[in-house]
Design a binder for these strands. Structure first.
Lengths: 103, 103
DNA sequence: CGGAAATATAACCAATGGGTAATATATAGA
DNA sequence: TCTATATATTACCCATTGGTTATATTTCCG
């Protein structure tokens, strides 16, 4: 399966689902409405997200309430870490600007 | 093509290439050695990375020196942003521990 | 100039993935 | 109990992708 977290996140609809769950818990039906996917389509994505540990479901009667678990995203954050000092952020731009002023 | 940065990063060998370029610039031949891919395989990945703005090449004679550009990764960082307050980090764990001490 | 070296592109293939319709399963409610 | 609702799973299809081999292109060097 998708042993790779980046692959899980690569699928746009899955990020849409995560973004939706970030706000609050949702049932599958609600996610279907939010993603304009078929119900099986959403269930398929939810399975992959579950297996990645990014969401979990709680059965409330016939409804399944899905909840976000952000923890695995720390892996992405950690991968990003060594790149952070390399990208030019606004502060760096300001520094360069000031450096040029001096000369 | 791959209009999606996450998709570009989803491929493990591409991350290997980025990680290698993070250390220093490399020629295609060097990357072939580092990735245990065929030369065309590496060139294909490099093209995708180029189109994503993550690397650029400088011709030095017959050799092409590839260099990393971390800037597009800020997009990933920005996507991650709203999730950060949600994942339980070590500090939070410490806080919880201390809270329990009090009671 | 002619061959070797470095890289890119083209052509092709097998595997994967995301989508859907159809079906199974479980629960709510009359 | 029977039907409707909510979700999951299965089966299938088409497009994409990552890999390779073969070929083109450029540059170096004898």
């Amino acid at each position: 399966m998708s042993d790779n977290l980046f692959e899980v996140l690569a699928e746009p609809k899955r990020r849409t689902i995560l973004d939706a769950l970030r706000v609050k818990e949702r049932t599958v039906g609600e996610l279907v409405a939010l993603t304009s996917l078929s119900q099986p389509g959403v269930s398929k994505h939810l399975r992959i997200l579950r297996e990645a540990g990014l969401v979990s479901a709680a059965k409330h009667g016939q409804k399944h309430l899905y909840r976000l678990h952000a923890q695995p995203l720390t892996d992405v954050d950690r991968w990003l870490q060594p790149y952070r000092p390399l990208w030019p952020d606004k502060l760096d731009a300001l520094e360069r600007y000031l450096d040029e002023e001096e000369s």
